[in-house]
């Protein structure tokens, strides 16, 4: 039985592996491109750009100073290249997860049937040990950037889907009723009412998705994804404690920066809603 499945899957791989790879080509191009941009630009420019984004997101000078210091230290300790690889894979994964996750979350919110189908799949994605689904991905696509990317996306996708769905379902029913009473089409309702009001929740989802992607970096490095995960992996196999520690700390630093910036941004977009409305 097990053998039958394995054989079947192997055949499937042989038949479709290549076209699948072609299918994911744009993803690879995107990743390679973003990596190149980050690595080929002079480092002060990259730091200024990241600090600028952090400021735009959070409007906090403290955070900006933190970003500059963190990246200078990373560069000084020789982890610049790996950090840039990690940043680019996180960026690509997050963008892809948002592009898939938000529409899927919206579909789930609009239909109980879709919700009933998707929820268990998300549960499986979140509870299944990541190594298990690394196997078919690797079998299909081999070792390399793309399978790593896909593994990270699969792992990071559930929170954004869940929280988009939840956010839209929890929009004040009175406001939705008002939208109906004024003759909105369902697209107008989505655009003018449901998405804006669900935004804090959607944002929490984006934040969690980024965190999940970061935590997957080490595991993804096992199947050939470059970045901060690889030195950590090397450190584990060769027992280089300080190397592992430093790279680990770099991951933590990036995580904290992403987390704070996206949280501050999330708070800022809902600041005028403070105190709620009405009763």
């Amino acid at each position: 039985m097990r053998k039958a499945i394995d054989d079947g899957f192997r055949e499937f791989t042989q038949a479709y592996g290549e076209s699948l790879e072609a299918f994911f080509d744009p993803l690879l191009t995107f990743l390679v491109w973003s990596e190149k941009v980050l690595l080929n630009s002079p480092w002060p420019l990259v730091i200024i750009a990241i600090a600028g984004l952090a400021y735009l997101g959070s409007r906090s000078w403290k955070l900006v100073v933190g970003v500059i210091v963190a990246f200078c230290v990373i560069g000084y300790l020789g982890m610049w290249e790996d950090t840039m690889s990690t940043l680019s894979i996180i960026t690509v994964c997050t963008i892809v997860a948002i592009a898939i996750g938000i529409p899927l979350g919206i579909l789930m919110a609009r239909s109980d049937k879709v919700q009933a189908v998707v929820t268990p799949i998300l549960d499986i994605m979140q509870t299944m040990p990541s190594f298990v689904y690394l196997i078919p991905v690797v079998m299909l696509l081999g070792i390399g950037k793309v399978p790593g990317l896909i593994a990270v996306i699969i792992y990071a996708l559930p929170p954004i889907v869940r929280l988009t769905n939840l956010g839209i379902r929890h929009v004040d029913p009175d406001v939705v009723e008002a939208a109906n009473a004024y003759g909105c089409t369902s697209w107008q309702k989505l655009k003018n009412v449901q998405i804006p009001l669900a935004l804090p929740s959607i944002f929490a989802g984006v934040n969690q998705t980024i965190m999940m992607a970061l935590s997957m970096v080490v595991i993804a490095s096992m199947i050939g994804v470059k970045g901060l995960g690889q030195p950590v992996l090397k450190a584990i196999t060769n027992q280089y404690f300080s190397m592992g520690l430093l790279n680990g700390l770099a991951i933590v630093a990036i995580a904290i920066i992403f987390d704070r910036v996206s949280q501050q941004y999330g708070l800022r977009i809902q600041k005028h809603r403070e105190g709620g409305h009405g009763v």
Binding site: V175, E177, G183, C184, N192, V193, L197, Q270, H272
Partner: peptide
């Protein structure tokens, strides 16, 4: 929808304004 837009308007107990 056209009928609602053209002929009716509604005011709600809890205001139901768009907070954003």
């Amino acid at each position: 929808r056209d009928f609602r837009q053209a002929k009716t308007a509604m005011v709600f107990q809890k205001f139901a304004l768009l907070p954003h």
